[in-house]
Simulated assay, not measured.
Amino acid sequence: MRRVLLLIILFNVKITFGSVGNASPYFKRCSYDCTRINCTLDGSKYKTNNLQNFFYTLTYWRCENECEYMCMWDTVDLFQKRQYRIPQFYGKWPFIKILTIQEPASTIFSLINLYAHIKMAKRMKEEIRFGSPNLWLWYGHAILFSHSWIWSAIFHARDTELTEFMDYVCAYSTILYSFYTMLMRTLYNSSKKLLVIVTALCLSFYASHATYIYTGRFDYGYNMQVNVFTGVLAVVGWLSFWQLNKKQIYTRKIALYSVYIAVMTLLELIDAPPLLWTFDSHAIWHASTIPATYIVYSFAIDDCKYLRKQMEFSRKDSF
């Protein structure tokens, strides 16, 4: 449930890749000199082959990338000596790289989230009888969220155009699917025709938005607004569902989940250098979604069991 709910106050936030660090003359000169001395003309490889680490080659770390990484820390040291504010580089704070992993904490927490979804999917399989109402909906939830966390881990480990695109489209898929799950549960007793229409509309919008992101020319502010708006609708919808179904005590779990996610999203508002050059607010946000995973699946299990009982009772009554 990665970035499932960004708050409305983020609507007008603009993301920029022009940062003080990479725009500084010192960083530019350092990167230029390092690349000229150590790298081939295209900047991809070291002139001295034995300097090229196998793992870096495997993950497409170019020689010029290594130069930028070393110069980033030289620039940070310079800024700190002059008592300037720690600068960002290409829209990001400086992180200590472990092996080839650019953001270790976010990568690890993404993998833990992946594990949590897989674990809870197995628990659903053990506790919910096959063919129970809406079980397919929650298996879809497990598949989409697991897929999203895989790409989140890959993106935070290595930021490229491809991994960035996959992280964006997968993140929105989870937000939209949370909204879709809410709609499917709320409209559970509606006609199949209506459910098909809702499904088609959600799929069409997702395809349209994913295509928009793929162009590479999309407005980051607009993308954030779409994420926020969809997430807020999901929260409002689930809280309304809880209000209408308070008699079923287990429904408080989905209310707790929604409020928890909304509150934890405040972490995304914190814009400060990472602690120990590793733990930034975004990484902590990833960590905060781990317990939320157990809450939402606990609701899913209870809800599927409840709907199963309702279905069996209805059959007996009809008989």
Rank of each mutant, 00 (worst) to 15 (best):
T40S: 10
V263P: 05
F279L: 13
V226T: 12
Y172F: 14
T211P: 00
Y220V: 06
M1W: 08
S190E: 14
N49A: 15
K14E: 11
F79H: 11
Y222R: 12
E161K: 15
N134G: 01
L78I: 01
I101L: 12
D302P: 03
Y214T: 00
L137S: 10
L275E: 02
G237M: 09
T186Q: 11
I98Q: 07
K305F: 01
K192S: 13
I254A: 01
C67T: 05
Y139I: 10
I284T: 08
F279M: 02
N113H: 06
L114Q: 02
Y69H: 05
Y180N: 01
A292C: 11
W61N: 05
P133N: 12
I8E: 14
W93V: 07
Q243C: 08
V76C: 00
S24D: 15
Y172I: 08
T107V: 01
T265N: 13
Y250S: 03
K45P: 00
Y56G: 06
V76M: 00
I86C: 00
Y26C: 00
L10R: 14
T293R: 06
V236S: 07
V196S: 10
C71V: 02
L58C: 03
W277K: 02
L239I: 15
S19C: 08
Y168S: 05
I295T: 09
S148E: 03
E68Q: 10
L269P: 02
P94N: 00
K28W: 04
H282D: 05
M120S: 04
F165N: 07
K192R: 13
L195G: 01
M120N: 10
L269H: 07
W138R: 13
H147V: 11
L194I: 15
A292E: 07
I197Q: 05
Q248W: 06
Y139G: 04
R315N: 14
P273V: 05
K192A: 09
M311V: 01
V4P: 01
E68A: 05
A210V: 15
T160N: 09
G216N: 10
W151M: 06
T59P: 07
K193M: 08
T57M: 12
I301M: 09
Y172S: 01
A116L: 03
I143A: 14
V226N: 07
F229M: 06
A207D: 06
F155G: 10
P274Q: 04
T199F: 13
D159M: 13
W138I: 09
S148P: 03
W285V: 01
M182Q: 10
T278Y: 04
D219C: 04
W151I: 02
E161V: 14
Y260K: 08
I175V: 15
F27E: 02
K125I: 13
Y297P: 11
Y168P: 07
Y26A: 09
R2Q: 10
P291T: 08
A234S: 15
L194N: 09
L239V: 15
L137N: 10
K122L: 14
N49S: 14
S298F: 12
V198M: 12
G131M: 11
A262Q: 10
R85A: 11
C170V: 03
Y172T: 02
S314Y: 13
K97P: 00
